[in-house]
Write a protein that binds this DNA or RNA. Structure first.
Lengths: 347, 347
DNA sequence: CACAACGAGGCAATCGATTACATGGATGGT
DNA sequence: ACCATCCATGTAATCGATTGCCTCGTTGTG
């Protein structure tokens, strides 16, 4: 049901003049300073005045002007977040965790997608800085092409990178230990008897992608696993499909296909199924991220679990610290990943 | 690579005093008014002055103060969007489409999640209004509990509802024709020989949910399909699993399980697979939304495709219109859905 | 040549809230 | 009873950009 007040609004259509602190002050018979203090609680006001003001504000439906407030306080209580894609479940999960963590700190989240385009990303960053967000959480689109814009933004306000980071600058970063993750994957595959493996990843354009390729190569070498090929495309289901098509066309499959993220792996699984290649009998497949859908694929996917809640909490902690003391020393936190073994590599 | 300027920033650490229009004016030897006009292009300035100002702004790394600008112009060029969940791929797809459509109009998106909680949703709406966004796009959490807050917000600024709408108020709305969608589903199932079907949905708390249940019931009746049960929970994979568990425990399965969204359907499919129930041989299953993962499940899911791009474009069009002329008459656009037939109801 | 018309650019008010400082009344200590 | 505190409240400056209005110089026209 709707309250009478709401009904009035609904009928009125779009607003009359917006109600300001001045109006509340006049109605309550006090100064704007007192209204401000009464509503924000910054300084104590006498009970009767508080009552007056609260009532007046409620009567007028006063909701304040955050813009004016932000201008004066030079604080927006908002942090901006820039991710390469909001369609990728890993990032949406991360966004959700970050939003949750921010809420506890009384901060709002302003979300932007860079669509993996450094130019668009730079524009988003400029826009966030112009909007005076208090800080920025970013997962950069590109390891080098994003560097200028990220470094510039980091010079304007507190900034923490998550998951990936750009080269050539120092700022806070929180992510996962990619080398350790690939070690887990390859040791598991070796244990399942794999003697050869290809890696399907994205064109090497950012830190985590590079570290995953590097980790794959070194641990494969260490374990005596042959690496017939490394295929680079982008982080998408479609690329997983295409890469699999190429492998099938090329002739005999490796013992394992290691994917740099779950979307790619889901594409791989789908194309294998279509081609009559049985996973894990004919080939082992692994992913990375542990998105919710990786448990639902056919077969369910063995993957590296990213502790995004921890990443988010830690990122917000670092950001809050930087808000308090902007001169602190940048920290880099590589969290420990874990392996989730499912049917795509067992049975 | 990083430019020298960016490197300076990166080394400097967090900003010195922020550079204002005053600094630019002083360096360029003109007034702030001229700087404003030169940079915004609001009024023409002479070529030499323009040159001076542009150079000064660049030298200082001036990026403006969007807050101050917003206060003066009472326009933020930002629209807020509130969705029940950013983990649900349907909403993320919608968000992405809306962001895309807004970009064309030169607007930024401020995204909030209500976590399907009307109280949190009301808080988000207050916050958006306080932040003076130019307009709001919302998919309300609840059909009645959200009504007050949505109506209030609609009274403050242009607002368009998407996908779902709250009862008792008139505002712009864009969504899909739920009745037509359920007609498609049930006629398809009837064609596949189904004589009984249960509906697995969310507790009836918003327009589209209600319309889907209603559509299911009427079309089932019309087609002579028995309805042994309607199970209500929430829009999640887990609820799909639990509902299936109940159906299995209750004894014999209906010919078809119709789900109110794809997440539920994915949960249903998973539990069926675990229980050795073969889809579509033993039971037909359908979803709603056509999220990307519905094509990857085991078996791939027959579902109703929502034209979210169209929904987004239309929503932004309505919003822009309301921005121009806030007194316009609310419009409701029910777009036509289509059925995507996959293996969960065929072979 | 005189005056109108115009264009560039400066001055200062303005948006709405916050807050340093000032004021005045009440309280308390000696 | 007097003076020092203290507390609630008001006054007005302030945040940074935009913009109405005015000035001044230039060009065009009768």
């Amino acid at each position: 049901m709707m309250s009478p007040a709401a009904q009035r609004w609904a009928r009125t259509g779009v607003a009359v003049a917006r109600v300001t602190i001045r109006d509340v002050a006049d109605l309550a018979g006090v100064s704007t300073a007192t209204v401000s203090r009464a509503l924000s609680g910054a300084k104590p006001v006498s009970p009767p005045v508080l009552e007056q003001v609260t009532r007046a504000a409620a009567d007028l439906g006063y909701s304040g002007n955050g813009i004016a407030s932000a201008l004066r306080r030079s604080r927006t209580d908002t942090v901006g977040m820039v991710v390469p894609s909001i369609a990728n479940p890993f990032f949406t999960a991360l966004v959700e965790s970050v939003e949750h963590a921010l809420q506890a700190a009384g901060l709002q989240l302003f979300l932007c997608s860079s669509r993996s385009d450094p130019a668009l990303e730079a524009q988003r960053l400029r826009s966030l800085v112009a909007r005076q967000v208090d800080g920025i959480v970013i997962s950069p689109a590109h390891g080098t092409a994003s560097a200028d814009a990220v470094a510039w933004a980091a010079g304007q306000l507190p900034l923490v990178q998550v998951d990936r980071y750009v080269g050539g600058m120092s700022s806070d970063w929180v992510g996962v230990d990619d080398d350790a993750a690939l070690r887990l994957v390859l040791e598991h595959l070796a244990g399942r008897g794999a003697r050869s493996a290809v890696f399907v990843s994205s064109t090497m354009t950012n830190s985590s992608t590079e570290l995953r390729v590097a980790g794959f190569t070194t641990h494969a070498a260490r374990l005596g696993i042959a690496v017939p090929d490394v295929l680079l495309g982008d982080y998408s289901i479609d690329w997983g499909r295409e890469a699999t098509g190429r492998l099938l066309a090329a002739g005999d499959l490796p013992d394992a296909v290691v994917c740099a993220d779950d979307l790619i792996a889901l594409g791989v699984l789908q194309t294998c199924a279509e081609a009559g290649v049985v996973v894990p009998r004919d080939v082992l497949v692994t992913g990375f991220d542990d998105i919710p859908y990786s448990a639902l694929s056919n077969p369910p996917l063995t993957t590296v679990h990213q502790p995004q809640d921890q990443i988010a909490v830690e990122a917000v902690r670092l950001l809050s610290a930087a808000l308090e003391d902007p001169t602190g020393i940048p920290a880099r936190h590589a969290l420990t990943p874990s392996l989730v073994v499912r049917a795509s590599t067992s049975r």
